[in-house]
Design a protein around this nucleic acid. Structure first.
Lengths: 359, 359
DNA sequence: TTGTAGGCGTTATCAA
DNA sequence: TTGATAACGCCTACAA
């Protein structure tokens, strides 16, 4: 069943059927009705390839997971972000294909991917998940004027992106710790080459400076955004001969979860001996009622918004880069030192909930 | 740059260029060389849409995440499985598009998806992640003879799938617990409508029966495969007036992790008071050296194998359903009661590692 | 508002 | 081994 046959059955031309299918308004009511009846009767659906070929748009968006990010693909951030992206695509009748630079040989596979997918016009545009600073693909796409949107800003290129203001958010979070009165504030950071890490660290430094302090080198531990990495990083801090910090700002909830575990294993009370602040707002997916104070970011919305921005770009290819910052929100629960009373209340009311709270 | 232009520049016909591009051997060495030189010089890549239209194959595979599974998309099983699928696709020069039945209105969105993607011939075949028993899509695809492969078997339909033998694996795991001498063995199961849950439960029951016992109703808790669900389920078991079970078989590592947390929060010693056995082999992604005894399944390989099976199906559409079981392996670490000595050793050697071991 | 007709860039079938 | 040529199914001026 194709346009031609529908046209014949409805007693109109292919063009008219095409117009009906594409919602063109220049069709008489009667013609439209006849066509639609046939379409439904025969359950006609236009052929995607033919459409792509004729319109030179595939209605497919590629979501690229750079190799550097591959390893932390298990981080709940990605599934949630992808979910948002898929849904936004679906809403616009687009499809999303997953492109991952495989570990085997990043250089070769990514080039092969690039050629096949970009040059073959397989996708109309690209969304790049959490790029790393030195990733060459950004410059390449830009110079070829291929439409793309980063999830996470890029420091060196004027490109479209969707991000949260990591720096401000981190600054706010650390300032909150300062306001609690903590003086020695450590940070467990993400990888040095990821832009989100850099920005969150910058916010940490800014907040300290505004409080009239300087960051101490041994109070910053670089880790990898994983729970396991957070566990290790916190143990490093615990082993610091300079003594315990009063608070720790951790650049992801997964790491914060590991850090809390390390503290518990060492018998260090939170927040009494060490306060903890996370970043992500995803920990609630792991425990039902987290006690972790954290920076909430709209993860799924970041994926969805990236898609919307890309669609806009596809509509007007000559437009200037579109850059959007989505809002974050400080979620003050218990590990930062807030809500101590509430803790008691809940413990008294229901031991189970109290237990769950404890990460 | 297209076939035509390449042909002109190489002084051959379009057909010859097409043959070169597609690796057809019926081309003279000289012609091939000339064509390849031009292709490389001009960086020509065939247009995907035109290819699809002419060959009526899109070289795209759809990966469907059913709505029921959506909620547990955060489970590390899915990212890892998907990663395997994407890589296998990439190896075969296929692309993978992600199809998710969105929460909004599962019935409507999934139908819309179905029409657009299946009828529009957008994808050549489908991989369905962890189907639920009552999912109608299986019957539908089958009756329309659309190629698809399930990740996880289906009890009521003769269809192609890739799975592990959940029942045997669970039986083996529980038998191991029996062999340790534990008598009251509980189970924390997944959702009742997921086939993997059902099979793992069946294996549990079989193992008990073989040990001359019957499962007790209050010793089976149905949960949802999440860490949080496992936490709650374990607390239910702890509240059981019949007293603590001696061992618990947990149907996923995520739930097992939550269960261990619950035990720790209640001050119950593992494995001395309660032994624990998990299922997945993914917990190692969350902690560096898990102490969790578990059933390891080749998660990434399940995704990859599903793709390979699907490609085979595409090659010979009339072939009978292909059903593959991938091997599992019992990983005996500490929570089942094995390796008590090793525990001591590691503790003595390195407190950090010992700490990490503790979930 | 409708229809005609050319073209999108391949693959595939023949005949040479 | 090569080359014409006809699909593939749709979109899109352009003309009516």
């Amino acid at each position: 069943m194709n346009l031609e046959e529908v046209a014949k059955l409805a007693g109109v031309s292919r063009s008219t059927v095409s117009r009906v299918v594409n919602g063109d308004h220049r069709v008489s009511t009667t013609a439209r009705a006849r066509v639609q009846a046939i379409i439904e009767q025969y359950n006609y659906h236009p052929n995607a390839a033919a459409r792509s070929l004729a319109s030179s748009r595939s209605r497919i968006i590629g979501l690229l997971i750079p190799h550097a990010v591959n390893q932390i693909f298990r981080d709940p951030f990605f599934p949630v972000m992808i979910q948002g992206a898929v849904e936004a695509c679906s809403d616009a009748d687009y499809n999303l294909t997953l492109l991952m630079e495989t570990a085997a040989d990043a250089r070769i596979t990514s080039d092969r991917l690039y050629q096949r997918v970009i040059r073959g016009r397989h996708v109309d545009g690209l969304i790049i998940a959490s790029s790393v600073v030195e990733d060459p693909i950004v410059a390449r796409l830009q110079s070829e004027k291929f439409p793309f949107v980063l999830v996470g800003r890029h420091p060196r290129h004027e490109v479209s992106f969707v991000d949260v203001d990591n720096r401000s958010a981190a600054r706010e979070a650390v300032t909150h710790l300062v306001d609690h009165g903590y003086r020695r504030i450590a940070m467990i950071s993400g990888p040095r080459n990821m832009i989100a890490s850099i920005d969150r660290y910058a916010g940490y430094v800014t907040a300290l400076q505004e409080a009239g302090r300087l960051p101490e080198a041994e109070l910053t531990i670089y880790s990898d955004f994983t729970r396991r990495g957070g566990y290790r990083a916190m143990n490093e801090l615990l082993a610091n001969p300079g003594g315990l910090p009063e608070a720790v700002f951790v650049a992801s909830d997964a790491m914060a979860s590991g850090a809390l575990q390390a503290l518990r294993d060492s018998g260090v009370r939170v927040p009494d001996e060490v306060a903890v602040m996370g970043f992500d707002g995803l920990e609630e997916t792991l425990v039902s009622r987290s006690i972790l104070s954290t920076v909430m970011q709209p993860t799924s919305e970041e994926g969805a918004e990236a898609v919307r921005v890309l669609l806009q770009l596809l509509d007007s290819p000559e437009s200037a880069p579109i850059q959007r910052f989505l809002p974050t929100r400080l979620s003050l629960r218990r590990t930062c030192g807030c809500n101590r009373d509430e803790e008691f209340e809940m413990t008294a009311v229901n031991a189970t909930i109290e237990g769950e709270l404890d990460v």
